[in-house]
Design a protein around this nucleic acid. Structure first.
Lengths: 223, 223
DNA sequence: CTTTATTGATAGTAATACTATTATATTTGC
DNA sequence: GCAAATATAATAGTATTACTATCAATAAAG
């Protein structure tokens, strides 16, 4: 899968950036190093000034790619869900057994990403850590309706709806397919967060995975 | 229930505040008006200066109650979950039918709060809106482990574990009680958020409630 | 009615989140 | 190979935020 992925450029809504970071060396450096810096110090403490220092560039140069750090996070999230969609489609295509297809889909969207040595500038395992810790912040703003209209969350919603379609193949009668899938996708990020920080309110750990919990849940619900 | 509640003081961890806001008129005004202001402009745009202007007090006076706005949000959240715990215990005590008890518990933790004319300074319906929109931000910080150690999230975790105990009464064999309940509690906030802002990835609306979805889910899973 | 605690007013600092301008490289087109 | 266009870097500057410190005014308690 990695070989194929490395030749694919993830499509991200143009309104998210001022200048496409994929079109220059500096742009790629911004993406690569922002992922590392956000992971290291957290999104709240992250600033363009600090990123500039880290990559040996000036703050003002970064502003030519992104209006502000919120949009950079939206960009990283979009890239992540675009990558997720690719993995999802790739893994579920040509699987004829509907239940097996759903199991594979749920596995893809709930799994923790471990470092599969991605050659390019984006470290998916660390990006996954950022999504677990920070994705919720892209949505929870006063501008969410405006940004939703502008299509900032389109890929995320498309991933959800792709899984919804698979759920409906398994059980067309089930009346809450969308809520089930949005609960699974968002919930799995939350369970990973709890495993890392609030262990007393989750059963997920090294032995019992978040994926196992949600596979079991979906099977029981759609039976 | 309102009558009883109005005489109860919610217990909030002392480390969260500098001075207990319940002990003075100014303190209560800070709580009352911060809820209205955060709801109106969002937590990200909320500042102590703006709150000071709104309540006709100086910024510096507010700092005598809370170190920063994050701790104020943690306080409001703690108060909310303390209130939720009270409602939960009150509603489920003396219910002998285990399944009925669980149904009542899930209803309590997943319901949207509508204005039941609370006489006191805290408007629970608006506070519920804030929890839906902002609660996640109390957890998603770099300081979460430290704050968890200091007991900032104790009441929240206790609410979850009270429901877990009820789940285990219904089905002692089910291996994911904690993850199920934390998914329901956090997930219901998320579903309310989606109903308000991203309708295309939820089934919940005016006719189909979040509570119905999770009641159905729990029943299927614990069957 | 004096001490103590609380609140208000003012001022000040460092950091953040930008914008604008100009200089310096680098790339590209002819 | 050189001019023009483009990208980046450096510097400076502004408004806001997130505080801290100090002192005066007021209210409450002994």
């Amino acid at each position: 899968m990695e070989i194929i992925l490395s030749n694919i450029k993830m499509q991200v809504n143009e309104k998210i950036y001022v200048k496409d970071p994929e079109t220059s060396a500096l742009g790629k450096k911004i993406i690569e190093q922002s992922i590392l810096l956000i992971d290291a110090i957290g999104f709240d403490n992250f600033t363009f000034k600090k990123l500039g220092e880290k990559i040996g560039s000036n703050e003002s140069s970064i502003y030519r790619y992104f209006e502000n750090k919120h949009k950079l996070l939206v960009y990283l999230s979009s890239w992540y869900w675009s990558w997720m969609e690719y993995k999802l489609v790739f893994t579920t295509t040509n699987i004829t057994d509907k239940k097996e297809k759903l199991r594979k889909a749920i596995t893809i969207v709930t799994e923790k990403i471990t470092n599969d040595v991605s050659a390019d500038h984006i470290n998916e395992a660390i990006l996954n850590k950022i999504i677990i810790a920070e994705f919720t912040k892209t949505l929870h703003t006063k501008e969410v309706d405006q940004e939703n209209k502008e299509g900032f969350f389109l890929i995320y919603k498309r991933v959800i709806n792709r899984v919804v379609a698979i759920v409906k193949e398994v059980n067309p009668e089930y009346p809450f397919a969308k809520s089930l899938v949005s609960t699974i996708v968002e919930g799995s990020l939350h369970q990973h967060f709890l495993t890392d920080h609030l262990k007393t309110i989750t059963d997920c750990n090294e032995n019992v995975t978040t994926t196992q919990f949600y596979l079991n849940l979906a099977e029981n619900v759609l039976r």
